[in-house]
């Protein structure tokens, strides 16, 4: 497949069944090196299964995968040597102190990685001399993140790394990810925080019931956003179906929000047309040019996830 050491992640028909249940339908992915890819989808959509399969924790029922140019085979040890993984589930050895637990996480890594992990953990103000059972949920998450970010590898797979963190810590975490990517690391990240993935990801892979329902580049979404005007009304009854037909935009109503897909990049013609139509209500607010990941998520899954 790919060349070793490039940081590329590829899958070809990667499939996983648990008995009769299809956890991951045949999946083809080609994740570019040096990018952050967001894995999005509701609970049970197959995000964690895909991540676990990539590092060999869950053997595939079919298909193939390679991470950083190394094909997935056996129990995936060769891949785990070339990447790091922060699991979504938080369960640690409470009897160890933070520093011991970092060393435990980093078994098989270099002493430099252990030092770096302590530096990262210290930057999060984690009390490394305290036993982990005294840590809060967020502190445990930061400890796992510190271990995952420390080794000098080309690929990191992070399953909901910011879940349970306060906004400040989340922001610090995102900054660390961005700094890491700037050094050329490839990151596969799953999260339910759309704002967070919107800020950090270059590509979005949307999963639903184990199937890839869309793969979108952030740049494409931003480009599409330049043709999207969002009009917010005071209440959902301000407009009713059937919606008016306009020359400069195609309209979609979602509750009290009207989405206008423009027929050109300039919103002024549409806005002028709306203003000229006295039978149409005045919006409470108008938004233009914003990334519409939330809209995309809503259109794919019907509901918007938290944040």
């Amino acid at each position: 497949m790919s060349e070793a050491g490039t940081g590329r992640i590829s899958t070809r028909g990667l499939t996983r069944r648990f008995g009769a249940k299809l956890a991951l339908a045949p999946t083809d992915l080609e994740l570019e090196p040096g990018c952050v890819t967001g894995l999005l989808g509701p609970n049970g959509s197959g995000k964690s299964t895909l991540m676990r399969m990539l590092i060999g924790l869950v053997p595939p029922s079919g298909g193939s995968a390679s991470v950083d140019g190394v094909a997935l085979s056996g129990d995936g040890t060769a891949i785990r040597e070339r990447c790091t993984y922060a699991p979504g589930e938080i369960a640690l050895y409470g009897e160890l102190d933070g520093a011991e637990h970092l060393d435990w996480f980093l078994r098989g890594r270099t002493p430099a990685a252990r030092r770096r992990a302590r530096e990262i953990a210290t930057s999060f103000e984690l009390p490394l001399d305290k036993r982990v059972h005294t840590y809060s949920h967020g502190m445990k998450r930061q400890l796992m993140f510190s271990a995952a970010m420390a080794p000098d590898v080309r690929v990191r797979i992070l399953d909901e790394p910011s879940e349970g963190l306060d906004p400040n810590k989340r922001s610090t975490m995102i900054q660390r990810i961005q700094d890491d990517v700037a050094r050329g690391t490839t990151i596969l990240l799953s999260s339910h925080h759309l704002g967070e993935v919107d800020r950090v990801c270059d590509t979005f892979v949307f999963l639903s019931a184990g199937r890839t329902v869309a793969i979108e580049r952030a740049a494409d979404i931003a480009r599409r956003a330049t043709r999207l005007v969002r009009l917010e009304f005071a209440n959902a009854n301000a407009l009713a179906e059937p919606l008016p037909t306009l020359a400069h935009a195609q309209l979609t109503l979602r509750g009290a929000t009207l989405l206008a897909e423009l027929r050109c990049d300039d919103p002024r013609a549409f806005l002028a047309e709306w203003a000229a139509r006295r039978d149409l209500p005045a919006p409470r607010s108008i938004e233009y040019g914003k990334t519409s990941l939330g809209d995309l998520y809503r259109s794919l899954y019907g509901v918007e996830e938290a944040c």
Binding site: D75, T77, R80, P87, A91, L106, R107
Partner: peptide, 16 residues
């Protein structure tokens, strides 16, 4: 049982 199975396996050490 204690939920640490995944982190136990996630390190670069073979299962054998």
């Amino acid at each position: 049982h204690r939920g640490t199975f995944e982190i136990w396996l996630a390190r670069p050490v073979s299962r054998v």
